[in-house]
Nucleic acid binder design. Structure first.
Length: 426
RNA sequence: GGAGGGGUGGCAGAGUGGUCGAAUGCACCGGUCUUGAAAACCGGCGUCGGUUUACCCCGACCGCGGGUUCGAAUCCCGCCCCCUCCGCCA
């Protein structure tokens, strides 16, 4: 949600910035109309309520003195008719205004490149050298089944397309990656390990911005207001919703492993092979709650924490700043980490690190009390993958594969794996 | 799933139809006293919205939503959450 003060004071500027994100300028104009209606209705309504309150008080005094109050009661009768009318009018306006506000995306930070889609993204840096293979590297969808560690067919049998079953060192590798990442972030990067529910309610999803606009991407539990989490960003960011934190508690850094569930509406035909795009995947998430003054420094830190995972796993990657047209609705600025996948001869997203500024905090009513006192302020929220586990497993398999079809396990994972290689059986 | 109890300001905890946004205690902030601190005493101390340069003023909020009433923290209905016991279950 955007600040109402900003929408009132600079509608033309907000409108311009939202257009960069593909929003129609009429939305801001409509907001202005509704806001004006809301305030004039409220002013009228509150004046009537004041009259009613004063009359009621007079009635109370008269009755206590044993006097007749019929005249005052009659006076209130007309108010009793008009107040509910105006109230429902005010509610209707407020509802429409609120719904409109919930659908407006965040404003892009000034450092974000302008553009309609990913072609306008800006590559910030390339880290690591893609390995020179002296054989034709395989894609993980061939490697995994050949090694007997990934099974797409059997998963389809018990569930359907875009699900995968892992066996043996494949399952072990997934679990090792989760533990390795949680250990790294908690022991070296100062995160609190969290284990949230994997099912969340609609309020939480509104808080982080998935609802009301993107319900089709979610798995909803029939007969409930519950949804499977699409990312741990939702439970983590909403944990302290409706609360006022002490500034001394900030910045708060939270990390969690959760499975993520996505309906992948509209992605038919994209990445149909392999692990890249699944209805269920694992992820270790990073969330920061910070003061507004610190949030951009925090974005650099959070991104570096995700990058550290790639470095330790000896995976080449690049850092990309998403353009205005490619960012998620809640973000003011997003860095994507894209890992090199030799089997596909491409860099693919493995982490997305965003500063949402106060956009989610306003929706979730997430505030802090400044140390020097004064009114509560909205804090800034950030989130990023640290990393997506399934895609990391893909990157490990494809980058560390050998000519004989085996895979060498990176040094840092060996204590978790209890193995140095994944060999072809039989 | 069944039965009972309960949700009030940062915390504890009064308040059962009329100056109640709400006693009191603790915590916190400021002051007096003190060499300093503590204690004691005095004062202050919720959030959101409307109006406003500002002060003020006004409206709303006692889990959430509706209802009764001139008037609801207080009465009625529905829902949510927490606690205890029973059942079931990993």
């Amino acid at each position: 949600m955007l600040s109402r003060d900003l929408l009132r004071d600079s509608p033309e500027r907000v409108s311009e910035l939202l257009e960069l994100r593909g929003e129609s300028p009429s939305a801001v104009a409509r907001w202005g109309e509704l806001d004006g209606q809301r305030r004039s209705t409220l002013t009228e309504l509150e004046a009537l309520k004041r009259q009613r309150n004063e009359a009621s008080k007079a009635i109370g005094e008269l009755k206590r003195e044993g006097k007749d109050a019929e005249a005052q009661i009659a006076e209130v009768a007309e108010l009793k008719r008009r107040i509910p009318e105006l109230e429902s009018e005010a509610t209707a306006i407020e509802t429409e205004l609120r719904d409109l506000e919930l659908r407006l995306p965040n404003l892009p930070h000034e450092s974000v490149p302008h553009g309609a889609d990913e072609s306008a993204n800006r590559v910030e840096r390339l880290i690591g050298e893609p390995r020179a293979f002296d054989f034709e590297p395989q894609a993980h969808w061939d490697l995994g089944p050949a090694l007997g560690i990934l099974d797409f067919e059997r998963a389809a049998k018990i569930t359907g397309a875009r699900f995968t079953a892992y066996f043996d060192l494949g399952a072990r590798l997934e679990r090792s990656l989760i533990n390795f990442m949680l250990d790294l972030h908690t022991s070296e990067h100062g995160y609190r390990e969290t284990l949230p529910p994997f099912i969340v309610n609609d309020d939480a999803l509104i808080g982080t911005g998935q609802l009301p606009k993107f319900g089709d991407d979610l798995f909803k539990l029939e007969g409930h207001r519950y949804y499977l989490v699409p990312t741990a960003e939702v439970p983590l960011t909403n944990l302290f919703r409706e609360e006022i934190l002490d500034e001394a508690e900030l910045p708060m850094r939270l990390t969690a492993f959760t499975p993520c569930f996505r309906a992948e509406a509209g992605s038919h035909g994209k990445d149909v092979r392999g692990l890249i795009r699944q209805h269920q995947f694992n992820k270790v998430e990073l969330v920061h709650l910070t003061t507004p003054e610190q949030s951009y420094e925090a974005l650099e830190q959070l991104t570096s924490h995700a990058e550290r995972v790639l470095e330790l796993l000896e995976l080449p990657y690049r850092v990309v700043t998403l353009s205005t047209g490619d960012m998620g609705v809640s973000a003011a600025k997003t860095y994507d980490l894209e890992v090199w996948l030799p089997g596909q001869d491409a860099y693919r997203e493995i982490s997305s690190c965003s500063n949402c500024e106060a956009y989610q905090a306003r929706r979730a009513n997430l505030r802090f009390r400044p140390s020097e006192g004064g009114k509560p302020r909205f804090l800034h929220t950030l989130n990023g993958s640290g990393l997506a586990i399934g895609r990391t497993l893909v990157a490990v398999l494809e980058n560390h594969q050998q000519s004989d079809g085996s895979v060498v396990i990176p040094e840092v994972l060996r204590p978790y794996m209890g193995a140095e290689r994944i060999e072809l059986h039989s």
